[in-house]
Design a protein around this nucleic acid. Structure first.
Lengths: 360, 360
DNA sequence: CCGGTTTAGCAAACCGGTTTAGCGCAGATT
DNA sequence: AATCTGCGCTAAACCGGTTTGCTAAACCGG
C-alpha cells in the first residue's frame, strides 16, 4: 500500500526521515564535504528511498540561475522549425550550449506578444536571431538586465552581435554572374515575416546588406538594377517558385537570378525548369546560405556559403562570456562568407533570343 | 544618475513606492477586479515607472506550473536539429504548444545523462520522442509525477503514446516493389543512436515494426530476405550513400531498395547513380517519412508518407489533456501511413544481367 | 589542563512571488 | 440601534529550496 497522498517529497521530508536538518540534506547534495561522509551517504540513501529530487524551480530561485539559455525568434516557432537554415543554426547553438551544460528554451511570440513571452521565460541569457534592432523588445530585454546576443540584425553599438559578411558575399555572387556575361539579373529577396514591414526593407538589415552587395557589383560593371527586377518571396521552395513565376509572367527574362536564400534558389530552379528553361544553359541561379541540401540539388547549387553552425556556436559562446564572466566589453563577431561555384551557374546564353524562344 | 545598485525591483519595492501591501501589487497584476480600479491602475503605473516585472521563477514556484513543455530526445540536440524529420515534428509540436500558450524547453542528455537533464528541467509535461520504453529514464519521469507522452517508442501499456502504422506502411512499400517484379531487395534500416544497442534492434521499436512489415510482404510473395540484405545506417544522406556503397562492394546487386528513412533513400539514390545505375530503370528506391524535400529529389522519391507534423501536434494535444484535465485515461494514438508513388520506383529490369553489366 | 582551531550540524533568514484568512468600514437590512 | 453584507485591502503563511551565522563537541600542540 502506498501512501494515499503521493505528494512529491520535499527536502523537509527527507530531513525528518533522516533525523537531520534541511541544511544537512542540502549539503548532502551540494557540498557533501561539509558533512561527515557517513552522514552524507545516509541522507542520500534516505532521499533515494523516498524518491526525492530537489525541486528545480526552487533551486533556480535561490541560486539565481536557470542553466538555460533562451533562443528568441520574432516568428512563430512553427515557421522556424520548417526552415533548414534555422535547423543548422540551432545545431550550432545546441552544440555550444550542451558543451557548457545549458539547456535550450525557445522564446517566440506568446499569444501574439514577444514581450509577454519574454516575461515568462526563465533564462540566464538570450540569443535573438533575426530580431531587428528597432524591435521594442530589445530595450525590454536590456532593461530587464538579461544578457543578450543578437544574430543577423542591424548592428547596435554597445551590443554583442554575431553576423556575417553579407555584403561581401552578395557582391561575390553578383560578380560571378556578371563575369560570365550576365547583364539581365533578377534579384529575389527574403520577405520580412511581418506583412506590415514588407514595404520598407531595413537598409541595415541582412537583406539590405545583401542588396547593397549585389548593387555594388552591378554598379561597378555599369549594369542597372531596375526596381522591377527586385522582388521578394517567403524563404521557402514554394516561395521561390512563386516569385519566379510571377516575374516570368510579368515579362521579365533574366539570364541570371540572385536569390537571397538557398530555399528560394531551389524554388527558382524548379520553376525555371517548369518553364522549359535549362539550368545553367539558359539561366543561371545563385543562392545564399549553402545549406546541406544545396549540394544535392539538380544541378548542384552555386551559392554563397556562410558558416551557419559556427554562427550559432559563436552566438552562444559570446553569450556565455557575458553571462558567466560578466564581460564588460560587448563584442561584435563577423564571420566570413565565400562563393561556392557548383552547377547552377554558367555563361550567359549567347543570343538573347535563345532564351525567349524556349518559352512554351 | 541611476541608482548605484540597479537591482531588479521586487514586488516589495513596488508595494512600498505605491504605499500598499505586496498582496495589493500581486492583485493588480493577477486579479485586478479584487481592487478598486483606481488603486489597480496606480499600482500598475508605479510598477511601470520602476520597471518592475514579476519574477518568472518565483511565480512558477508558487503557482506550481511553468507553462512550458519539455521535448525530450535521447540524442544530443545537435544531431536532432540537423534532421529534417525532427524539424517537421517540432513544427507540429510548436504549433500545438503555441496555441495553448506553452513554451518549449528541449531536454537532451546533460553531460551524458538524460536523468540529470530531467532533474533540471522545469516543465509541466514531457513529450519524449524516440525514447525506448526500456530506457530507465521513463520510470524516473513517471515516478517524478511529470505527465509524459511517448512518441515513436515501443508501446507501454498504461502510458499515453503517439505512433504511426509503421508495419502497414512498410508492407505497402514492399508490396509495391514486389508487384513490379522485384525479388532482390535490399533493406536499409536506421541505426540506433547508441552504438552499444546497435546489435539488437528492438522488435517492438519503430524499426522493428517496419522490418516486420517488409518481411510480411516478402513472405506473402515467397521471397526470402537473407540477413545479408538487411543493413543499417545513420539516418542521413551520407549514411545512406555509405550503406549502399558497402552493400554494392560486398557483392549485393538488389533491384529494389527499401529504406527506413527518406534521408537514407536520398543517399542511396545518389550512391546508385554514382555507380552508374539509372533510377528507376536499373534500380528502384522507396523511402519512409515523405519529408518535404522528397518531392524535389531527382527523381522524386517514392516513399511511405507519415503525417509528421500531425504527430507532433497530436503528442502535445494528448499531453495537454493529461496536464490540464488530469485525464485519467491514457490514450494511445496511432496515425495512418500511406504509400506515395513518385519517380524513384519502377518495374524491375527484365534480365538480371542488365544490372550487372552497367557496373564500371 | 588550557586556549585555539577544526569539524559537524542546526536555526533562521532569504530568494520573490501567491494565496488564505481576516479586519475595518460603509451601506443595507431588520 | 443592532446586525448583516460586501468591498478594499492587509498580515502572515506558504511554495521548496540555499546560504549565513553560529554553537557545541572534538582535536591539537604546548
Amino acid at each position: 500500500m502506498e501512501e494515499r497522498t503521493p505528494r512529491r517529497p520535499r527536502i523537509a521530508d527527507v530531513a525528518r526521515e533522516a533525523g537531520v536538518s534541511k541544511t544537512a540534506v542540502s549539503f548532502a547534495f551540494n557540498s557533501p564535504d561539509r558533512l561527515a561522509p557517513e552522514t552524507a551517504s545516509r541522507i542520500r540513501d534516505v532521499a533515494v528511498s523516498l524518491g526525492y529530487r530537489p525541486h528545480p524551480v526552487a533551486r533556480m530561485l535561490t541560486q539565481r540561475r536557470t542553466m538555460t539559455i533562451g533562443v528568441l525568434t520574432p516568428q512563430a516557432l512553427a515557421v522556424i522549425f520548417s526552415n533548414p537554415f534555422f535547423g543548422a543554426f540551432f545545431e550550432g547553438v545546441a552544440l555550444a550550449a550542451e558543451a557548457e551544460g545549458y539547456a535550450l528554451h525557445f522564446i517566440s511570440p506568446l499569444r501574439g506578444s514577444l514581450a509577454r513571452a519574454m516575461d515568462h521565460a526563465t533564462v540566464d541569457g538570450v540569443v535573438a536571431v533575426g530580431l531587428s534592432a528597432r524591435h521594442p523588445e530589445v530595450e525590454q530585454i536590456r532593461a530587464a538586465g538579461v544578457p543578450l546576443v543578437m544574430v543577423d540584425s542591424s548592428a547596435l553599438p554597445d551590443q554583442p552581435t554575431v553576423d556575417i559578411d553579407d555584403e561581401g558575399g552578395a557582391r561575390a555572387a553578383a560578380q560571378h554572374l556578371i563575369a560570365m556575361g550576365h547583364t539581365d539579373l533578377l534579384i529575389v529577396g527574403v520577405e520580412p515575416p511581418f506583412p506590415g514591414t514588407a514595404a520598407q526593407l531595413e537598409p541595415d538589415g541582412v537583406m539590405g546588406r545583401r542588396l547593397r552587395g549585389y548593387r555594388a557589383a552591378a554598379l561597378a560593371a555599369g549594369i542597372e538594377i531596375v526596381p522591377a527586377s527586385f522582388v521578394v518571396a517567403p524563404a521557402s521552395i514554394d516561395g521561390g517558385m512563386a516569385a519566379f513565376r510571377r516575374a516570368w509572367t510579368s515579362g521579365l527574362r533574366p539570364t541570371g537570378v540572385l536569390a537571397m536564400s538557398d530555399a528560394i534558389a531551389v524554388g527558382v530552379l524548379r520553376a525555371a525548369r517548369d518553364e522549359g528553361l535549362r539550368v545553367p544553359e539558359d539561366i543561371s541561379v545563385v543562392g545564399f546560405d549553402d545549406l546541406d541540401l544545396s549540394q544535392f540539388t539538380d544541378p548542384p547549387l552555386t551559392t554563397v556559403h556562410q558558416p551557419i553552425r559556427l554562427k550559432g556556436e559563436s552566438a552562444v559562446r559570446l553569450l556565455m562570456s557575458v553571462v558567466e564572466r560578466r564581460d564588460p566589453f560587448p563584442q561584435q563577431v563577423r564571420l566570413e562568407t565565400r562563393l561556392v561555384i557548383r552547377g547552377s551557374s554558367g555563361p550567359a546564353p549567347q543570343r538573347r533570343q535563345e532564351v525567349a524562344r524556349v518559352r512554351r
